[in-house]
Amino acid sequence: MLSALASRLNLLKQLRQGNFGDAVFKILAYFFGLFLLFITLFIMYQLLFQGVPAIREFGIGFLWSTEFDPVQQQFGALQFIQGTLVTAFISMLLAAPIGIGIAAFLVEIAPERVNRIVGFLVEMLAAIPSVVYGLWGIFVLAPFLRTYVEPWLIPVVGWIPGFEGPFRGYSVFTASLVLTIMILPTVAAISRNVLQAVPRDQREAMLALGSTRWEMFSKAVMPYAKGGVIGALALALGRAAGETMAVTIIIGNARRVFTSVFDQGATIASVIAGNFTDASGGVYISSLFLLGFVLFILTLSINVVARLLIRATSTGPTNPTGGF
């Protein structure tokens, strides 16, 4: 089999021709490329393999069961899938326009020096450990929201389904806000790089046709950068869905389906983080692994959809790999 692979790669031919460097390079490149693939598949296999007892026990119904009762050994995923999707969605909804706006301001309007300095700061923000965001969220943001935002926010949105009920400091809403702040640097920093990579001649072409700066941005720069920006959003969404520490601290970890974002909830990541120390017994641990597998599939599908979106909407130079 090895020799079949070797002949496929033309290794022997290259070695015969004395092309030693190329042969070595090819072997190394293949090795590392396959290594990455192996790790991904191995993690996926492990999650699924460890999840087998739970699958045996609950079957596909695990996905839409809302039971989570360690005492009765009953486990389900629906409320956590809900928590993950809702927090990720709200934070995306807020972070996407703000982040792209920051990037647009830095690249198109701010003076070069401001662009450089603020751009650097934004990238720094992305490197702050998430536990720090969580700490800040619980001791600063949550009280602040309760004291100053709740009194006027509730009368305004309290009647909308999904925003009803009492306002809690530790809630899905607060967790989503912290997530927003966490993924904002990712959106802004990558979008900024992508916008900066739009060739000058594209901007000049539109300006020379008599466009305003806004028209230049919306009709020449954004279409060109679209693929990369969607890539930035996909990356941020993946991060939001998988974020563990900050969310665990702040979301309240209520293991039930929530009907209001001001209520407490839990995400897949937070329930795993909150329960692994107590987990005993095969089905309990196995269920956590299975939850992990669900999260893996969830983020994977988000990325795949983002890429398909890029491919479907781009006719131009847009890099189908999403610019990263």
């Binding site: 001649d201 000049e204 072409a205 539109m206 020379a208 008599g210 020449a220 006719t315 131009g316 130079p317």
Partner: peptide, 17 residues
Amino acid sequence: RRKIGMVFQKPNPFPTM
């Protein structure tokens, strides 16, 4: 710029159009 148009050194059509 609406009255004075310009063609650049390097062809720069809009690639997404």
